[in-house]
Design a protein around this nucleic acid. Structure first.
Lengths: 356, 356
DNA sequence: CTGAAAGCGCTAACAC
DNA sequence: GTGTTAGCGCTTTCAG
């Protein structure tokens, strides 16, 4: 199979064709070529066509994508995805999967920008014309990338939303409502003492949006419903879950329900509770906040508030593309939580009727 | 819960801190700062700390697009990942996760190139200097991207390997050996009639490497061991699994074992066999080829040949980086299959001792 | 209208 | 070990 050799291979020993090569070939100065490309000053039609000719003949690529210059678009979406302490990769990958699939429909690719250098990384990517726009994940309540996102010439969509979301486009699950929904469900069943196992502590220390809001929603609802509530952060490993579970029970022996907002911990919850002398759901009812598939892979099946990673990822891309096309989508798309009741929260006979 | 504000606010001052500023502040040469940053030559501990100090104080952030300029490197790896019919996204994402994590250690990002325009897409990406090199997935036995990859000025590593892998760098599980290992395990247990449920038919139609080779290994081993074997492709959905299961049993009522090479199907296998009147493992033993985690999420636990997605992804990045650094890694890294016996293949009493 | 030349911020070959 | 100095490919003055 012989490929049609373009002239580019003869120049520069088969390597990259530079603007200088084009200039030489067209008999003009490099700057002239640059001006033809950028259109930042008027060029005689004659020169212009000659340069264009040389560019084509030499197969010159303006060192980004040829599309960047002709269309101004790279067809690449930057997915800003800091991999910080406590990040649960499988959870994140659900978003990525959804985003990549959706992006595909617009003939776009995804650049996974996993550097955790925050605003600086963003600025760099924005300047380097690598991407047309950004999808930003792992948003904190007071995120230092937010002011920059507002200034940036490139559009962006946040998966999650900071405290001050003005001027941004965000998609998110209503995590406050989600946290509250868990409490309400359990309180309705008669539970008066509810524990909460959350994300790894590092996640709260950063005030990561989803974790922070869920906690808030949980606490507020507990107050409202007058139930005792205690929350603990848990790392992803088995030991941490076991320790947290036992600590919770030691502090509140009367605890009859548990809300879990930690996908990594889900698999161990039942076993750890048993190790602490509690049966699920006999002694302790459990509600998880996680994708439905996860809740259906445990035994017993867990009642859960659905984490619609796929929807969020899809909407985010849709919104970003809309912005790229000059449309002005709504600034905040907040999906309402949906609870699916499963085996882990049966009717709570002991306290039936005690509901305030 | 109040978040601890980090020092990074000084960056927001607006002015860009350059490497020269740092050098001046630390009383060294710009290059020294550069070397401290890159670690490309030894620096006295004293100087190093002084420079680090200045970097922190000034809030210096390396400007990466310029790094690209002077090094010719973008620090982006193109992950060529066609999303074709039959592609099981969760499986693919395991590789992506591993690759992204590993790339991170080299301070590189991943560009998910999901366009399925094969060689053309590759060439475009290669010329436009968007990426430093390629990781190529979903490799077919006779892949039309292979000749191009050989010519390309950018290095590449294939996850999977084509029939003619000369001149390429490939990482792969030894899928032939994997297929064979399943048969051997079952034959050793005395099974004389083994079914095979494979990937979606589209995957075989393309002669996708991993599916093709597994089938080959399976069939060859069955011949060698003198056991009856029948293979069927299955799509990912429940109906297809049910249909295939029933078809298999109708054709070979004496079938006592099943090899499953289809992650999407795994969850339904036991239920479908039961629906067809067969208990696992009482009537039919099952061996899966899948990641260990998956095999341990079913009931009963499945004996499996481990699909080391994480290792493969990690090695692929390691190899690519090695090539980027001018090293010449071995052309083919073929991981040996490892079988973990679990509940789905107990001793096969009925045929004990019948083994040839 | 066009060319020469000075950088952009950073790296790496070359000195000492 | 460290400083000097030339570029990387392109943009953008400043002179024609």
């Amino acid at each position: 199979m012989v490929s049609t050799r373009s002239v580019s291979e003869s120049v520069n020993g088969g390597c990259v064709v530079t603007i200088a090569d084009v200039a030489r070939h067209a008999g003009v100065a490099p700057s002239t070529v640059s001006y033809v490309l950028t259109g930042k000053r008027s060029i005689s039609a004659d020169t212009k066509t000659r340069v264009r000719e040389s560019i084509r003949e030499l197969g010159y690529q303006p060192h980004a994508s040829d599309r960047v210059l002709s269309t101004g678009r790279t067809n690449v979406i930057g997915l800003v995805l800091p991999l910080r302490a406590g990040t649960h990769l499988p959870a994140v990958m659900r978003f990525v999967t959804a985003a990549v699939t959706t992006a595909r429909r617009y003939d776009m690719d995804l650049l996974l920008m996993t550097a955790d250098d925050g605003a600086a990384g963003l600025r760099r990517a924005a300047n380097s014309a690598q991407v047309d726009g950004f999808l930003v994940m792992d948003v904190e309540m007071d995120d230092d990338r937010v002011p920059l996102l507002r200034q940036l010439s490139k559009p962006s969509v946040l998966i999650g939303h900071p405290a001050a979301a003005r001027g941004l486009t965000c998609v998110d699950l209503d995590f406050e409502a989600a946290g509250a929904k868990c409490v309400d469900h359990l309180a309705d069943l008669g539970h008066r003492s509810i524990g909460f196992l959350g994300a790894p502590s590092a996640v709260y220390r950063r005030s990561t949006g989803f974790a922070h809001r869920t906690m808030n929603g949980f606490s507020a609802a507990a107050m409202r419903r007058g139930v005792a509530a205690t929350a603990l952060a848990v790392e992803g490993d088995h030991d941490s879950v076991l320790r947290a579970t036992k600590a919770l029970i030691r502090a509140h022996p009367s605890m009859t329900a548990l809300v879990v907002h930690n996908e990594a911990a889900l698999g161990w919850i039942t076993a750890c509770l048993r190790a602490a002398g509690r049966q699920v759901p006999g002694d302790v009812a459990v509600v998880a906040i996680c994708p439905d598939e996860l809740a259906e892979q445990t035994s017993p099946l867990l009642t859960s508030v659905r984490l619609p990673a796929e929807e969020l990822g899809r909407h985010a891309v849709d919104l970003l593309v809309a912005k790229l096309e000059g449309k002005q989508p709504p600034p905040l798309m907040l999906l309402p939580p949906r609870l699916s009741r499963r085996a882990s929260t049966p009717d709570h006979a002991a306290h039936r009727g005690a509901t305030g």
